[in-house]
Amino acid sequence: MKIKFCGIRRPEDVAYMNEFRPDYVGFVFAGTKRRVTPEKAAALARLLDAGIRKVGVFVDEPPENIARAVKLAGLNVVQLHGSETAQGIERLRTLLPEAEIWKAVRVENSGSIPHALGLGADLLLLDSFSVTEQGGTGKTADLNLIRKANLSSPFFLAGGLNSGNIGPIVREFSPYGVDISSGIETGGVKDRRKIEQIMRILRKESGKAVG
């Protein structure tokens, strides 16, 4: 199972990532509370272990702007969190043929996941729905709707995951990966102790040792 920690914005965060080595880290280029500029992401990326893949989180950003950020920060994955279309995703593939494209799904109703499956992204990331925010709310995704979708393709699971609930959730859903942001924070900043707790739980679930 893949592990992604999102909302990296300080050198201290990068140090934690290099210590615990998740598979992916996410830089947020939208919203306010975790937002970084492409230039800031590039500076942080230079401090990051080369074996950790870098994800950029975007919300309804023009494809040309996304391409600029990807190239500047050396991102491997584009994660789309807005109302992006199949045409927009195809345009991104033209601009960024080497990058993976993930589509985040704010699971609101039974049609949310089937609609996203038709957009042509490489992978879906299933997140909680909020009227006011596009992601990173700390609210648990609607697990009943995800159960009913009965997805056969690999997906990431996000939305309110923390050390208190992640074990049973990953055992039930067997996601390809998990994406955690608020669940490894205290007072709005990344917390080393919480990162260590999450890593121990997930490595145990996948039969690996932490270290």
Rank of each mutant, 00 (worst) to 15 (best):
F29K: 05
N18S: 10
L72D: 00
K139M: 11
G111I: 02
V77Q: 07
P175R: 12
G138H: 11
R193G: 09
I66D: 07
R21D: 01
E61C: 15
E90P: 02
I52K: 10
G31F: 10
E90Q: 14
G111E: 15
E61H: 12
A141M: 09
P63I: 03
V57D: 03
G7K: 11
K204Q: 12
Q87L: 13
G167D: 13
V170T: 07
I198C: 15
H115Q: 14
F5W: 15
I89S: 02
F155D: 00
R171T: 04
V25W: 01
L157Y: 07
L47R: 14
A149N: 05
N65I: 01
I3F: 07
G164E: 14
G160T: 08
E100L: 14
G167H: 09
D60G: 04
R171I: 00
A41P: 07
F27W: 12
E39M: 06
I3C: 07
L202E: 09
K190A: 06
A43L: 10
K190E: 01
A45V: 00
W102F: 13
L47Q: 14
D127H: 03
V55C: 09
T186Q: 13
F129C: 00
I169N: 01
L48Q: 07
S163E: 14
L145F: 10
T32D: 10
I3K: 09
L44P: 05
E98R: 15
S83H: 14
S110P: 00
F58L: 13
F27I: 07
L124A: 03
F29A: 04
I180L: 14
R9W: 04
E12V: 09
Y24S: 05
G160W: 12
K71M: 08
E98N: 13
W102Q: 01
V105K: 03
I146M: 06
L48Y: 05
R193T: 15
G183F: 07
G74D: 02
K148E: 15
G188M: 03
A43Q: 14
K71C: 12
V70W: 04
I180N: 00
A99Q: 14
G160N: 12
P22Y: 03
A121P: 08
G51V: 00
K71Q: 15
D191Q: 01
P175L: 06
R34W: 02
E90S: 15
R9I: 08
V210R: 06
V170H: 08
F129T: 03
F129M: 03
A50D: 12
S153M: 13
H81L: 13
I52R: 06
C6D: 04
L161W: 04
R91Y: 10
K33Q: 15
G183Y: 13
Q197V: 02
V178E: 00
T137F: 10
E98Y: 07
A15L: 15
A104G: 02
A50Y: 10
A149M: 04
R200L: 12
G111C: 06
A158L: 10
I52G: 04
Q134H: 13
E19N: 11
N150K: 14
V105Y: 05
G135E: 08
R21T: 08
Y24F: 15
P38N: 06
Q87T: 11
V70L: 05
I201M: 01
S128T: 10
I113A: 04
I8Q: 01
L161C: 02
K208N: 11
G120T: 09
K148R: 12
N150Q: 13
A158C: 11
L75S: 02
P114G: 07
L96K: 02
R200C: 05
